[in-house]
Nucleic acid binder design. Structure first.
Lengths: 350, 350
DNA sequence: TTGTAAGCGTTATCAT
DNA sequence: ATGATAACGCTTACAA
């Protein structure tokens, strides 16, 4: 019932070998199903290994071969969208006999680099960078040293690493179109400001999708983009400025769910009623969206799928692929009360 | 500006040695500030190492000495309380030259064990287990093999590992007392159900604190404990049962903030107004509590501090301490509108 | 103070 | 098909 293998025994290849009565190099091969071992020997070796509770020593392994460890770098643990991604990563990795280890690079690029270095030093077989804030040039440098897949940066022409993304442009367009169908035209875009000027970020693409679709629908005069840093206080004051200014929009499309929640909060404090006075939309479709007090329309970008796909690609690179692959998943609009103006007659009170 | 060290050079101790014109073992010692190296040699070696971009090979190091890696096991990335803890861990670890790596054991104890095994196999110097769901006996087994600190399980008599906790009993008492001061006596406790029967969990202590304080204040006839699993749907249906039943409490004290948000959602759907009809309290004081649409009174258990302290203890164990230490931090009640009945005359509309 | 040498537990190459 | 042997890059006695 315990499940924990008491493994202080610390059996090594040699112990298994002497127990099975064969050479230790034979054990190495047998255990890895390498070429050139008879079935009878494999069976005997496996039995011994089992009995002695043998476990390969990862450090020793890393010295010659692989460590079977993938490093995952995320910039912000608080965003539960990242947790979703990691779920997909972890599953896919462990099914292939790999272990995913998470390192956190707290937005500051310095820390980000330090974590990447640490992962490379620890001989991780591959790196999965989730929404890194470093420049494409730096990404190339990293990818030169170790198999790399990047999630959340649009660099479809990168050759030394793969990318996995949701189609942020389409996501943004879906939002604008949906709102326009609700007869809303005055739509503002609330984005993250003050990033280390990065190229190809998801935010850049969301903004482009927003602008393009507004243009396409003839709403260009309503285009309005405001920004705030990640800090909760800054988000609030930017939202307050936007909502109490003279050009208050009818709808605010936020770059991430959490910002949307802050906007909703500010709106309530200002005495605005939702969705009659103001409509809010988020991005990521995190679990909090479904809470009735939010009921927030959001874009689902299938984090788990992103994580799975990225891991699959990474394992391919670890296995030797060098040609680049760029995977894009179509996001989906999840409509909730926050954007449904004409409510059914029997309505619950939001 | 790039910050990324291009290190494909792959310089080893030998390279540094020949560059500095000394033996490679001298380099090893000089770089680790070991005993028996002259200042002149140390300087020369450091200069060479710097110039060649030397970085120690963690796997090779792990074979003889330490890996300077700490493994952190968390059961649920989604709880942003855990992110807070990891922030403290990461900082403290890196200041001591260690790197913290996160592994996720998705509640299922099987996965939890697998992750721990993976961390031990990778020769991590110490393990930090955050709210593990395994039995105390299994914890002992793990701690026997590797320096271990446990956060979020009350086992003050454990000898083979250290524990770091907030005082859950006090936390719960604070809540009950606070509510009673608001003239509320009918207080229910909403807890997590269906765990693999664990001993010493935070929940056990919160419930005890709740029961004891209710008793102490003469409110024992109002004691009511309901449970639900981690699943969002289950939480909702349990909350619905509680709030629409004939014994609807005046206040619900929830084991974690997210559950409180679900309770608030159900309450709104039922047409209850907060805080007049129902008062809700959470635990963890996650960022979402401060949102005006929640304004949730909660218990702050200082996750970052917990993480820092746990890491400090772990590093001590790694350094050789074997005597157990058990650190407990006093939690604090953060009062917000969700429990303030008599509001100031100029009130914002929650 | 400095250098030499023996492992650490693997993988991979080469004989047998 | 099997087994000896040489790395891998480092730490740590021990010798000079």
């Amino acid at each position: 019932m315990s499940g924990i293998r008491k493994r202080s025994s610390g059996a090594t290849l040699r112990d298994v070998a002497s127990d099975a009565g064969v050479s230790f190099s034979a054990v190495s091969k047998a255990l890895r199903n390498a070429y050139g071992v008879s079935d009878s020997m494999r069976l005997r070796v496996q039995a011994s290994a089992e009995r002695l509770g043998y476990r390969p020593h990862a450090a020793a392994r890393g010295l010659r071969g692989k460590t079977f460890t993938l490093g995952v770098l995320v910039s912000d643990l608080h965003n539960s969208f990242f947790s979703e991604i990691f779920g997909g990563v972890s599953d896919t990795a462990s099914m292939a006999g790999y272990q995913a280890m998470l390192g956190v690079g707290q937005v500051q690029p310095v820390v980000e680099n330090a974590v990447i270095d640490a992962m490379i030093d620890r001989q991780m077989d591959g790196l999965l960078l989730v929404a890194p804030s470093m420049s494409p040039a730096d990404l190339e440098i990293v990818a030169e040293e170790v198999p790399t897949v990047v999630i959340g940066v649009h660099l479809p022409h990168a050759t030394s690493f793969d990318t996995v993304n949701n189609d942020d442009e389409t996501g943004a367009r879906l939002v604008v179109r949906h709102l326009q169908e609700q007869s809303i035209s005055d739509i503002a875009f609330f984005t993250l400001a003050g990033l280390p000027e990065a190229r190809g970020t998801t935010l850049e693409f969301r903004e482009r999708g927003y602008r393009d679709e507004m243009q396409l629908l003839g709403l260009q005069q309503h285009i309005q983009v405001v920004g705030a840093s990640m800090d909760s206080g800054e988000i609030r004051s930017a939202a307050l400025r936007l909502l109490s200014g003279k050009r208050r929009p009818r709808a605010v499309f936020c770059w991430t769910d959490y910002a949307a929640f802050e906007v909703i909060g500010v709106a309530k404090e200002l005495g605005l009623s939702l969705p009659e006075d103001l409509v809010v939309v988020g991005y990521d479709n995190t679990p909090y969206c479904a809470l009735p007090q939010h009921s927030l329309t959001s874009i689902d970008q299938f984090g788990q799928l992103l994580g799975q796909q990225a891991t699959r690609l990474l394992l391919e690179r670890v296995a030797g692929r060098t040609s680049p692959e760029h995977f894009v998943v179509k996001p989906t609009l999840v409509t909730r009360d926050s954007t449904v103006i004409i409510k059914p007659s029997v309505s619950s009170n939001l």
